[in-house]
Amino acid sequence: MYHETRAADGADPGGAVILGHGVSKLFGGTVVALEGATFTVKPRQFISLVGPSGCGKSTLLRMIAGLIEPSSGSLHVHGDPVGKPRRDVGMMFQRPTLMAWRTVLENVLLPTELVRKVTAADRDHALELIELVGLKDFAYAFPSQLSGGMQQRASLARLLQTGADVLLLDEPFGALDEFTRERLNLELLRIVAQFGRTTLFVTHNIQEAIFLADEVFVMTPRPGRIAGIVEVPFERPRDISLMQTVPFNEMVAEVRGIFDRDNK
């Protein structure tokens, strides 16, 4: 079925990491979680998906992750139709989902352990990532000994350990306080820039969405769909002061305008 639609949509998957054409998802045959999402994600792009609850942003992310299948339309990752989870796509959730019985190092090594025997080189790589996310002194701590922000740092290190070149972040810092979230966002930008990975970042915060992204997918609910795609031209590396500038706030207004238009 996917092969038919793949031929039919006629898009060139060559330059795109993720290609969606009319992607829809129905739950229970009646509830439309996402309707007709058409979009392209190019290599090393940072995309923010912003919208209120029920706009289908998490559904879209989970389809790209191969955790659930689209009901109709075509969705390709690296030219292959999505179907099941793949090694080059990694996901991070709002909750840290660390295993309480594993040390930070062992949690970070989990993706490796699931596919092969862990070697000393894997350990060293994991320790580097732990240092990168700022948990150098906590490699042998258990999750319950860490703060919420530190747990998400560990979770981010685990995501990087997968070696995936597509990172799917589902409101990763949404449960944290404002200050911690701001700091982790900045670090995320630094880390993603360093690794040059393609990133999809789900949030319900417009400022955060724009600040981080090259492109913002503005999503609206009932039924969930992509109501508009806004390109973010600001230079990188970006500083938190960017959020005080006029062009930034004009862009916030533009995104908000898309929501308002949809509400009428």
């Binding site: 989970r62 992750a65 090694r87 989902t97 993706p111 699931l114 596919v115």
Partner: peptide, 14 residues
């Protein structure tokens, strides 16, 4: 069982 945990394991191809 923690659904998120299982989802994570699935996304890692477990």
């Amino acid at each position: 069982a923690d659904e998120d945990q299982i989802e994570l394991m699935r996304s890692l191809g477990a």
